[in-house]
Design a protein around this nucleic acid. Structure first.
Lengths: 210, 210
DNA sequence: CTAGAATGGATAGCAGCACTTTCTACTATC
DNA sequence: GATAGTAGAAAGTGCTGCTATCCATTCTAG
């Protein structure tokens, strides 16, 4: 298909597709002549994946490029790709030097029996959250971590099962992307629904605004 | 204290504080003369809260203003404030007309025994996620929702307990903000840690990049 | 008491980002 | 052979979250 059809079927404007091509988010089409190229179903698929990451995941163009790089690297193990993808989804580094927050995270990991180097981005992200919590006077917030961990454990198993259910390695890697990006968005929505439901039963008056 | 001290103690540059004052994220200081104002500990607290929402939560200035509006409204019930806050945290509306996604969400809510109008933002957010999942060829993604719900239920209880533990209504409302904004960030980090751990045990080779 | 720094308030400017527009030189199609 | 579509490059746009500059006034150190 040509770029106009790619645009029509994806709902993405032609100039935006050209922009993505320039930025390396989409591989170039197959040139049939100096100014004519053909695009495949793969392009359409990839384009939709890019839009999902940008719109739903709120990823920057640079982050999307990084994720796609991990996705296309034939050397990369599933385990490593997961790390790259989660790192890209997380908010950009805000390294904290809060000693107490560090200790809280270390103690938490110990309690959970999770081994994780302090250099890992997820470790840093958690320290950043706890440091911020302390700054706004919510030291108690750290007490909620174990609850999060209990919730996260079965989710991680479901994530992995979902990923491994995809046959090929490519499908599995894409499952990681979808599971992470859509998973985070879905979890936020479901969490809001659950809170809404619970707080509604305790205080059954008018519902929150649409 | 004066603006310089507010800046020093919060780590936020003076021009940025002035910007927040202009944008209505911070109440004006108490004017002691036409060009002198005094700021209180409350200002410092509020400023830190704003930074937490902007930096960790990734909220826009407009969204922060909306959240603070809900927080300052003495009429607003806790239940309603929760709705406003969750809506502000969520990614901006991307209303979908995907019928199948709609049905999937309805069926999900029925299974969970959750009553929720289709006009609610959380409902819409979930429809948007499922519609996107289907677009990228992951119809199976909807099967993960019940797992999310099982995880979200105890989290919602913990959230509410955390919120109600704060004595005054002001404290409770701030607990909602912290629980939502920091809670989402913490959950994402913990989820990544859990995935990392699980995938590491299944495939014990080099860890993901720092 | 005075020089210099700080303040409130206002306006203007800036950098980054995610596109969009415009252009040229072609090519496919009716 | 007129019309529409295309690749590719470059410049432009609109928005957001700050920064910088300015001024008249006021605090403050010596």
């Amino acid at each position: 298909m040509r770029i106009a059809e790619l645009s029509r079927r994806s709902g993405v404007p032609v100039p935006t597709i050209k922009y993505y091509l320039r930025e390396g988010l989409l591989p170039a089409g197959e040139l049939t002549s100096p100014n004519q190229a053909r695009y495949s179903e793969d392009h359409l698929h990839r384009l939709r994946l890019v839009r999902a990451m940008v719109e739903l995941g709120g990823l920057s163009i640079a982050a999307v490029r990084e994720v796609l790089g991990a996705l296309d690297d034939p050397e990369k193990s599933l385990h490593k790709a997961m790390g790259t993808i989660s790192a890209a989804v997380a908010s950009p580094d805000l390294g904290s030097d809060d000693e107490v927050a560090h200790e809280q995270v270390k103690a938490f990991l110990e309690r959970q029996g999770w081994g994780c180097r302090p250099t890992s981005y997820a470790y840093k992200a958690l320290v950043g959250v706890l440091a911020t919590a302390r700054e706004v006077g919510h030291e108690r917030f750290a007490e909620m971590l174990d609850g999060f961990a209990d919730a996260a454990r079965p989710l991680a198993e479901a994530d992995l099962a979902y990923v491994l259910a995809g046959g090929s390695k490519d499908e599995a890697l894409e499952g990681v992307v979808v599971g992470t990006v859509l998973g985070d968005a879905a979890m936020a929505a479901v969490r809001a629904l659950a809170r809404r439901e619970l707080s509604g039963t305790l205080q059954p008056d008018a519902p929150p605004p649409p």
